[in-house]
């Protein structure tokens, strides 16, 4: 890079780190939400089962 490698790659590397970070953060946020939903779903099922058996 004609002696400018630090500046050019420093720009590109940080850019791709930010993009990867943003995608990972959104995916984590969605996974947390899906886990909550399945927990609620399981609890609902358990409650309906208790109602029928008791």
């Amino acid at each position: 890079m004609g002696g400018y490698g630090f500046y050019v790659w420093g720009s590109y590397i940080v850019t791709f780190i930010c993009i990867a970070g943003e995608i990972i953060l959104i995916s984590n946020r969605r996974r947390t939400l899906e886990r909550q939903f399945s927990l609620i779903h399981d609890l609902d099922n358990k409650e309906t089962k208790n109602e029928t058996t008791s």
Binding site: M1, G2, G3, Y4, G5, Y7, V8, S11, Y12, T15
Partner: peptide, 19 residues
Amino acid sequence: PTDFQQGEAYRIIFIHVPA
């Protein structure tokens, strides 16, 4: 091509301007 004044450093433009 390489820029006659800035050499290779100008290639930062390909992310600086879009950003």
